[in-house]
Amino acid sequence: MTQIDPRPRVRPAPSRGGARTTSGGLFRAVWRWHFFASIVVVPVLLVLATTGLIYLFRFQLEPLLHPDLLRADRPAGMDFQQPYSAQMDAAERAYPDATLLAVAEPRSADRPTVITAEMPDGTPREIYVNPWGAEVLGSLNPDTTVSGYAVRLHADLMAGAWGDRLMELGACWALVTALLGYYLFWRGRRARSRRPRSLRSWHARIGALAGVGLVTLLVSGLPWTGFWAHRSRRSPPTRAPPCGALTTALSPIRPPHWTSPSPTATRSPGPRARRRCRGPTTPGTAVRSPTWTPRSRSPRTKGFGIR
């Protein structure tokens, strides 16, 4: 018998594309995350974009829907407007049970004066008064207007805390999707050079430009949400002023077109603005109290309507 020796086993050469395989796997994983995250993010972005656009053009949209309330006719030969006291008296006569809170002066000569009031059941009400004749044109609930619904949908989908968390989560995932898209844009530059007119190449170029505005809107809007607002608005603790210092005036800051119709409309400093001074003070001197600044009216504030 003839014994045939088996051929020696040849070990395969080590693959030089191990790094490419790992990199390609990361690219495909990031692409999947970018694709599936966009499915969740796109409906949220459509709601935010639509409602934000409606609220942005509310001054042009609401007069078209309510021309009898948001337009004030100027009588012929009259060159002066009635004082705010007369306009407030007219509003009180038309709505005796309402509590007047603030007055917004007309934005132009053909716009009415807007008086913000609160009804006995707690619902907000905006009373529109013709500044030329001190005539009440009517009133609206700012939460039931088109811009009011848009603001409430934009904030929390009219679902309270759960809707706010859902919109905040969708905005966060939109930010993640944009960052993943920029990674794919950088890694896929060679493929775009080979096929510059493909649909994926056009998507990458348009997304790279639109992503700048998207990231700017998301970063500027997230501080108005629930969780991000609680984290971003936390101010560092400040040291208490020394005893015996001069008292500073408590002057609330209001928009330039806002006036207080009554002394009760001016807010007073809350309990957080009060500080106790330990130790004796010099007779005849006052204790410094911090200047109180009220929180500005944000679109999420109840009763934020047409101005």
Rank of each mutant, 00 (worst) to 15 (best):
163 G>D: 01
103 V>T: 11
103 V>H: 08
143 D>E: 15
169 L>E: 07
104 A>Y: 14
136 V>Q: 08
114 V>R: 15
112 P>E: 02
168 E>P: 12
92 E>K: 09
161 A>Y: 08
173 W>N: 11
127 I>V: 09
173 W>Y: 13
95 Y>W: 02
134 A>E: 09
155 A>N: 14
131 P>F: 11
117 A>E: 05
99 T>D: 12
145 T>E: 08
128 Y>H: 15
160 G>T: 04
112 P>Y: 04
106 P>A: 05
110 D>C: 03
134 A>W: 02
160 G>D: 02
106 P>W: 00
100 L>S: 04
93 R>C: 00
147 S>C: 01
140 L>S: 04
173 W>F: 15
171 A>P: 03
147 S>D: 06
144 T>A: 14
91 A>L: 05
97 D>T: 10
139 S>Q: 12
150 A>I: 07
136 V>I: 05
103 V>A: 04
130 N>F: 08
91 A>V: 03
151 V>S: 08
140 L>M: 12
119 M>T: 15
113 T>V: 13
138 G>T: 04
149 Y>N: 11
153 L>I: 09
132 W>I: 04
125 R>H: 03
132 W>G: 09
122 G>W: 01
146 V>A: 07
165 R>I: 12
162 W>L: 12
168 E>R: 07
160 G>E: 01
98 A>Q: 06
172 C>L: 15
119 M>Q: 15
139 S>D: 15
166 L>D: 05
129 V>E: 13
113 T>G: 08
102 A>D: 06
124 P>D: 04
109 A>K: 12
116 T>A: 13
104 A>C: 06
118 E>L: 15
127 I>F: 10
89 D>V: 05
105 E>A: 14
157 L>Y: 02
168 E>W: 08
158 M>T: 10
163 G>W: 00
145 T>I: 03
154 H>K: 02
146 V>I: 11
